[in-house]
Amino acid sequence: MEIKGEYQIDASREAVWDALNDPEMLKKCIPGCESLEQISATELKAKVMAAIGPVRARFDTRLSLENLNPPQSYTLVGESKAGMAGFGRGSAAVRLEESNGGTLLTYNADFKVGGKLAQVGSRLVMGATKKTADDFFGTFSRELDPGAMRMDIDEATGGAMNSMTWKAIGAAVALLLIWWFLLR
């Protein structure tokens, strides 16, 4: 599965880069993050509680940073194991560009899921992952700059909306999805 997105953050590229490499910052921003530990300069270990559709599990995640090109780009490679619930693995290319006096962060991720996650949640993984990414960058932007907003590549015209609006839309979509499942 491929997923991509971009976020405009009202902070300097260096500040964004530093924040992305700050375990405390990451811990604060990853939804459901219970612990996060730096193992080496480029490796992290995390425990994250997450729900994808009907699968709710604790993901033991290992992340490593590759192709480091500060402060412009890096690749995040990760693998999450959730015992009986299955696994997820993949990578995301992250790019930071100076834009409008702030930083435009774009990511391009490719990942796969397996086990029960694929079995009962595959249709929901895309949405759940997008939501997790949005939550992460939403919090991240707020931490760096309370006025940040986010744009999707294919939804760029929505750029005038603030992050609260995006959250509301997200919640509405999630509710619709749940409602639809109940009706089936």
Partner: peptide, 14 residues
């Protein structure tokens, strides 16, 4: 099944 052998229709939802 997907190409990697993951069962995608693994519940009454699918």
């Amino acid at each position: 099944y997907d190409d990697s052998g993951q069962l995608l229709s693994g519940s009454m939802m699918d």
